[in-house]
Amino acid sequence: MQTRLTINGTGHSLDIAPATLLVELLRDDLGLTGTHIGCDTSQCGACNVLVDGAALKACTVLAVQLDGKAITTVEGLATGGSDADTLHPMQAAFREHHGLQCGFCTPGMVIAGIEMVRRHGHDLDRATIAHDLEGNLCRCTGYVNIIKAIQAGAKAMQHSGEPANA
């Protein structure tokens, strides 16, 4: 099925088998392995990506359903030309606040944090972040630092002029 997708800013026209999940297209066909498969049952959020700015679980959407949409994966967040060595403020905050232990859930957590800013603005309290992380699981149980990182990242997005609807 011919499908047009913009992935991390690059337009693609792809012939995709209808049963291909978005996460399979990203990882297996395009080599974008930053989007992880944790549970494969829409619980854990390791496969979160942004589609037209809204976070969704790439394990529970068919790639062909997103014809015409713009997808941002964790690989598309950093900037700085071909090296892409300038981290997105939310990524930088995860590093600064040690918002990860094994790192498996991190791409989904970063995407979830960015979308919280879209929903609630830059000034996030701990209760809001904890509630809005209900669709993301960290099996290292590193939630304390994840919440700190998202809180700081949301503020940093304001200072860096990052649009709330990234």
Binding site: S42, G45, A55, L56, K57, A112, E134, G135, N136
Partner: peptide, 9 residues
């Protein structure tokens, strides 16, 4: 319902 990502979809 569900979680934020589920509600988006």
């Amino acid at each position: 319902i569900g979680d934020p990502q589920v509600r988006n979809r």
